[in-house]
């Protein structure tokens, strides 16, 4: 872009134009030297040439200092601050993201451990229930055993009692057959029980 480049260089052109006026006006100023003192001093053309000269000098100096020193420095400071602020914001954002991540992790961990704990609790509840059922059953069976034992004992005593009776009968019958004498029932019973006691 040659055109834009030319324009870029020509942005100083009005300074050249300004100096051009300095060449144009002196003749005018000289022709009207020493005008009347009445009226505004601004229209006293004799002062024009020197004012334009010093305007050009001071404005060129001013422009030079502004464009080479002041503006770059202020721009630098502002840019630097902008950068710093952006950096801080980015840092804060990344820290926040990190914190979010940690929070999410923590929450996930919390949920996991909670579910794990729930599982453990459920398991132990089940286990306890099972054990309880087992224990109940065991209790039930032990009761059955007890009642069966009682029945057995009862049967046993019944049997033993009937055994006594049978033994007495048998003993009485045997004695009658062997010696032919009838022994009283009470005597037989006494003897038999004595013998049985001895055996048991």
């Amino acid at each position: 872009m040659i055109v834009s480049k030319i324009i870029y260089y020509l942005r100083n052109l009005w300074l050249v134009a300004l100096s051009g006026i300095a060449y144009k006006l002196p003749a005018w100023a000289a022709s009207k030297k020493q005008s009347d003192s009445s009226g505004l001093p601004q229209f006293d053309t004799s002062t024009y040439s020197s004012q334009i000269f010093w305007l050009i000098i001071s404005f060129l100096l001013f422009y030079f200092i502004m464009s080479t020193k002041a503006i770059p420095r202020i721009a630098f400071v502002l840019r630097e601050r902008q950068k710093r602020i952006e950096g801080d914001i980015n840092k804060a954002n990344s820290l926040r993201e990190e914190a979010d991540e940690i929070r999410i992790k923590y929450e996930r961990f919390l949920a996991e451990s909670r579910s794990q704990a729930n599982e453990i609790i459920c398991n132990s509840i089940n286990q306890i229930a099972n054990q309880r059922a087992h224990a109940k059953e065991a209790l039930k069976s032990s009761e059955k055993i007890k009642s069966a034992e009682a029945i057995i004992i009862e049967q046993k005593t019944k049997a033993l009692n009937s055994l006594d009776f049978v033994a007495c009968e048998a003993a009485a019958a045997a004695t009658r057959k062997l010696i032919g004498t009838q022994i009283s029932k009470s005597k037989v019973t006494k003897v038999v029980t004595a013998i049985m006691r001895k055996n048991t």
């Binding site: 020197s50 004012q51 000269f53 200092i65």
Partner: peptide, 26 residues
């Protein structure tokens, strides 16, 4: 070059303005 460029109060304040603003901004 035959042109009157005498220093005057107007010019003085142009220079003062230049110096003051330059000092202020730099």
């Amino acid at each position: 070059f035959g042109i009157d460029i005498s220093f005057n109060n107007s010019a003085l304040f142009m220079i003062i303005a230049t110096i003051l603003v330059s000092a202020f901004l730099t």
